[in-house]
Each structure stands twice: as structure tokens, then as C-alpha cells.
């Protein structure tokens, strides 16, 4: 079996993201996630560079890798051309592939994103859709959004949208052909498999907790 480090090295984002970190801490200084949590990209890259399997396991089944917001400010600032954000992407992919994501509270929350954004893509052709966004799940949307949603047929028509109709335009109904293309791409390139990994990993964790 390949080591965690070898598996990470197979990911081209890992190859792009990790050159030779000098542990200067510039990434942590600029990182919005580090400002609001104990996330520390400098420390995380240092841990990866140890190539120690136990240390890597600690990352793959822990919360830290899920704290990054992927703004990629770290890419701009690193004086050695590293991108901790890309390393995170590779770690997250491996964490899901190995099922280790389900061992952490933050990792488990991937299920929520899969069941919203992931399924919206296949249903609507876009990650987000007005029909799915209510102020129960998204209270920050506020009263204007509530009013907009209640009157969306009329307001969207006034604003020149093509809401839920065929043809071009804002919030149009995506054709079956395009949705079938997306479905086929998701099957061919591993997105469906990842969805399944997220569902089964989280289901197993829920069962174990019971």
C-alpha cells in the first residue's frame, strides 16, 4: 500500500503547492482563517514536510485541514512559491478517499455541502438556486430576500430574467441535455464516487456514534 505522502504526491495540486517551505510564517500572517481560528498554514506545511505517516494521519483525521477558506492569499505572498491552500486541497481529497474525514467533526460536515451544492449542480446546473435558499437555513439573507422569494416570479420577470423557462437568460431552466452532460462527467471523473464516499463515511460515523 502506498504511503499517505506518496498518495499526496500523486495529486498535481500537491506538486504545485509544495516546493520547499522555509517556515517563514508569511502565509499564517496573511491567512483569514488563522485570524479567526487556531488554523496555522505554516505549521500545517511543516507537518506535511516531515513525511511522517503518524503526523499525516493526524492531519487527515483532524479538523485543521477543514479550516482553510481557500481564498488563496497564501499563494500570492509565499516568498518560495508554495501554496498551502493547494496542499489543503490534496489533503482534503485524500481524507475523503480514505474515509478519514468522517473521524473529525469538521470533516463530517462535508455531507451538508454534498447534499446542497453537490446535488444542486445536478438538479439545476448551478451550485446555488433561489428555490433552495430559505431564511431558515440562511437567516442572514434577511427580510428583503424573504420578500424577493415570495414574489420571485413577478420580480424576476420585471428584471429581465428567464426564471424556470427554457432558452437563454438568468435563472433559466437548464436543458435535460446539459444536465445529462454534467451527470455523465460526474460519473466519468469520480465526482459520483466522491459523493458516495462522503455519504457512506458519514453514515458509518453516525452509526458508530449510536
Amino acid at each position: 500500500m502506498e504511503s499517505f505522502y506518496q498518495l499526496l504526491s500523486n495529486d498535481i495540486r500537491f506538486q504545485e503547492g509544495l516546493k520547499a517551505c522555509i517556515s517563514c510564517g508569511t502565509c499564517t500572517a496573511i491567512c483569514p482563517a488563522a485570524q479567526v481560528s487556531d488554523y496555522d498554514p505554516r505549521m500545517l506545511v511543516e507537518m506535511v514536510q516531515t513525511r511522517n505517516e503518524e503526523v499525516l494521519l493526524e492531519l487527515l483525521n483532524g479538523d485543521a485541514i477543514w479550516r482553510c477558506g481557500e481564498c488563496l492569499s497564501c499563494k500570492t505572498r509565499c516568498p518560495r512559491g508554495n501554496t498551502p491552500g493547494h496542499i489543503i486541497q490534496a489533503l482534503r481529497a485524500l481524507s475523503i478517499k480514505t474515509g478519514l474525514f468522517a473521524d473529525s467533526k469538521q470533516g463530517n460536515l462535508q455531507l451538508e455541502i454534498k447534499r446542497t451544492v453537490g446535488e444542486h449542480i445536478l438538479k439545476y446546473g448551478y451550485c446555488v438556486h433561489i428555490d433552495e435558499i430559505d431564511t431558515g437555513k440562511y437567516p442572514e439573507q434577511g427580510p428583503v430576500w424573504e420578500w424577493f422569494r415570495e414574489n420571485r416570479e413577478s420580480l424576476l420577470a420585471r428584471l429581465g430574467a428567464n426564471y424556470n423557462h427554457e432558452g437563454a437568460g438568468t435563472l433559466r431552466k437548464i436543458s435535460n441535455r446539459s444536465l445529462e452532460d454534467l451527470q455523465a462527467i460526474f460519473i466519468e471523473t469520480g465526482a459520483m464516487e466522491r459523493f458516495q464516499q462522503i455519504e457512506s463515511g458519514s453514515a458509518k460515523q453516525a452509526k458508530d456514534e449510536k
Binding site: D11, I12, R13, W66, E70, Q89, R92, A93, I96, Q110, I113, K114, V117, G118, I121, C127, V128, I185, F186, T189, G190, A191, R194, F195, I198
Partner: peptide
């Protein structure tokens, strides 16, 4: 797929 990609729920290949 950018939002899904940057949230870690779909692979780069997708």
C-alpha cells in the same frame, strides 16, 4: 463547479 470544488466535495478532474 467552482464552489463545489473549493469546498472539497468534487475532484479536480471533474
Amino acid at each position: 463547479t467552482g464552489i463545489a470544488y473549493h469546498s472539497g466535495i468534487i475532484p479536480l478532474e471533474t
